[in-house]
């Protein structure tokens, strides 16, 4: 029983990792908390659903979802944050502006879906269950875990092993110095937002498949969990977000399995509060986080 729960927890962790990696990447590079990230995640699930509903194959839906959420994320950056960064009010203004973007996106999704819960037609994903060592694993769970691992590895390669990754890290460290080195920060920002949105969109499709329930507010709980994860990992830290997703997915699965279910979110958010108090820079974040800084 415990081993089964741990296995389920690992699959959930993979989805959280996809969602929160983009969230933390964007914060790391711009110190902006993009609250439209949940709506972008939801858009991914919706695009995949409508592709399948229109008769397209699932793999096409998956690719379209990733591209569409990536582009939407770039659009949010251009419309909501670009001007704010010039006026230097991005910490406060970014939150307000992205709340606005999230509202617009999810209200449009509400109207497109007529406020209904959408379900993939039966057999969109083959229902195959493997049993070994007394454990049950569905093909879908294997696919989710596989997709999460592949995407995380691709991201790691991009950030730590390519010229693009070096540019991203340079702009993260010091935008002005990076500009003097001939890097166009706006281009780097657009690329980063595309990756962040694409990862969120992929997570959206996986969650939509796993629970087979897609609606316009499905991003909200993930946005809330995303907060907890990126704070626990340290705002802006990629390895931190990975580690925190793992911890968070396990803790959530185990508390749902072994504790009164009504209290799960109370426990999670109380824990978030405690982390902010004891260690605001999280497990792997930089020390300066949360200290007095010039702001607003």
């Amino acid at each position: 029983m415990l081993a089964q729960q741990i296995l389920n927890g690992l699959v959930v962790s993979g989805v959280y990792a996809l969602f929160s990696l983009g969230f933390t990447l964007v914060f790391g590079i711009q110190r902006i908390l993009n609250l439209a990230h949940g709506a972008i995640f939801m858009t991914g699930a919706m695009v995949a659903y409508y592709t399948v509903a229109a008769g397209g194959p699932l793999w096409l839906g998956f690719i379209l979802a990733i591209v569409a959420s990536g582009l939407l994320s770039v659009l949010v950056e251009i419309v909501c944050f670009r001007r704010l960064r010039r006026t230097g009010d991005e910490e406060f203004g970014g939150i307000i502006s992205s709340i606005g973007a999230g509202l617009v996106i999810s209200t449009i999704a509400q109207q497109v879906s007529s406020t209904q819960i959408l379900r993939f037609p039966f057999d969109t994903f083959p229902v195959v269950i493997f049993r070994f060592w007394g454990l049950r694993v569905s093909m879908l769970q294997l696919f989710m875990a596989g997709a999460a691992i592949v995407l995380v590895l691709v991201l790691g390669y991009l950030i730590y092993r390519t010229g693009f990754g070096r540019r991203v890290r340079a702009v993260t460290d010091n935008e002005h110095a990076a500009m003097l080195m001939g890097i166009n920060p706006n281009l780097v920002y657009s690329q980063t937002y595309f990756i962040a949105g694409a990862l969120a969109g992929a997570a959206g499709v996986l969650v939509g498949l796993a629970f087979n329930s897609i609606n316009f507010v499905m991003g909200e709980p993930y946005l809330m969990f995303g907060f907890a994860i990126i704070i626990l990992g340290g705002l802006g830290s990629i390895p931190g977000a990975l580690l925190a997703s793992l911890v968070f997915g396990m803790v959530q699965t185990l508390t749902i399995a072994y504790l009164p279910s009504g209290l799960t979110s109370t426990i999670i958010f109380a824990a978030l509060f405690l982390i902010l108090l004891v260690r605001p820079h999280g497990l792997l974040g930089k020390e300066d986080a949360g200290n007095l800084r010039g702001r607003r």
């Binding site: 914060f27 908390l33 406060f92 907060f227 958010f269 978030l272 986080a289």
Partner: peptide, 27 residues
């Protein structure tokens, strides 16, 4: 607790507070 935090961290902590109150209320 909020006196120790600044900016974005305060915003996140208060959003967490809303969630705690909401779920305790339902529970």
């Amino acid at each position: 607790p909020l006196a120790r935090l600044r900016g974005v961290y305060q915003a996140i902590a208060t959003v967490a507070f809303i969630q705690i109150v909401l779920s305790l209320n339902i529970y």
